[in-house]
């Protein structure tokens, strides 16, 4: 072992449906025999990694945020909690303070500022975390946000901390689509970002947004062009001009599409993908160790 540090790769895309989960699960499976892999499905609003990795769920845990509970016996209706809440999760109505749990970000400012100690922070469940091993020995965990709950970042943050063990050598995080807070949270702390795009104007538009995030967060990254052969050459041109490497191309093929829709990965389509993903992993490792801006 030349580097005992864990290597954390986040798979993101911007545009939805470009193949994040296809790549993330295929990469995890190709490394399963050599590395101690932890796979985190961070797309908590629509997790689907389990459909491909098929883990045996062994443990589960509630994901919670802390929300205020107001003891009206102690409350002097000073209105300070309402004033400090940046999310309008509290309102002073008549002789009481109303709490709107779905707007609360769990920051704790209200309790901190309460001079009469009338605010107790209580657990508000927003989803669940589940974990287990796959047949190949991959440690798998995902978060499932309860429908109608709006806050994704706390559950992603809890998921990232949950199953990490000293024995883990590679963490693969499958990010949600888009370029908002949940993607930033999934990228935070990653050593490398593998960006999946398709060669279409939509793919390029959203890819640029995620590249912007990577630059702000100073995370090195590389691109996989999926459904190669459709669309136009704008993605290639953009990446060439900006010195961002294309690390793999996955062709547009009905064979792949039908494998994915039956719950299989690229490794089931062709055994060559196993070797390709292992080579990709070595390249990422080298890139991270040499601190090359990919």
């Amino acid at each position: 072992m030349e580097n005992a540090k864990v290597l954390c790769i986040t798979v993101a895309s911007g545009k939805g449906g470009t193949g994040k989960t296809t790549v993330a699960t295929s990469l995890a499976l190709s490394l399963a025999s050599q590395e101690n892999v932890l796979f985190l499905d961070c797309d908590v609003e629509a997790p689907n990694g389990h459909l491909f990795l098929k883990p045996q769920v062994e443990v589960e845990k509630k994901a919670v945020i802390l929300i205020p509970h107001i003891d009206m016996e102690k409350c002097i209706l000073c209105g300070k909690c309402v004033e400090v809440c940046q999310f309008h999760a509290l309102a002073e109505i008549g002789k009481s303070i109303m709490v709107f749990p779905q707007l609360c970000h769990g920051c704790g400012s209200c309790a901190w500022h309460c001079s009469s100690k009338a605010i107790k922070e209580i657990h508000n469940p927003i989803g669940i975390l589940e974990a287990g091993l796959t047949q190949e020995g991959i440690r798998f965990a995902h978060g499932v946000l309860t429908i109608s709950e709006p806050l994704t970042t706390p559950i992603i943050r809890q998921l990232k901390k949950w199953q990490n063990a000293e024995t883990v050598s590679v963490i693969i995080r499958d990010a949600p689509p888009g370029a908002s807070c949940s993607v930033v949270e999934t990228l935070r702390g990653a050593d490398f970002a593998l960006l999946i795009t398709e060669p279409t104007p939509f793919g390029l538009h959203d890819l640029k947004q995620v590249i912007g995030i990577l630059q702000d967060m100073k995370i090195p990254g590389g691109v996989i062009v999926n459904r190669d052969g459709i669309g136009d050459s704008q993605v290639d041109q953009f990446l060439l001009q900006n010195h961002i490497p294309i690390m793999m191309r996955i062709p547009y093929s009905t064979k792949i599409a039908s494998a994915i829709s039956s719950g299989n990965t690229l490794l089931d389509v062709s055994s060559n993908y196993g070797l390709e993903f292992q080579a990709l992993f070595q390249r990422i490792k080298k890139c991270v160790m040499e601190k090359e801006a990919c």
Partner: peptide
Amino acid sequence: NQRGGAGIGAAQIAV
């Protein structure tokens, strides 16, 4: 221009 909770803020104004 509040990101969220504008309705509650407005209700608070009315109250």
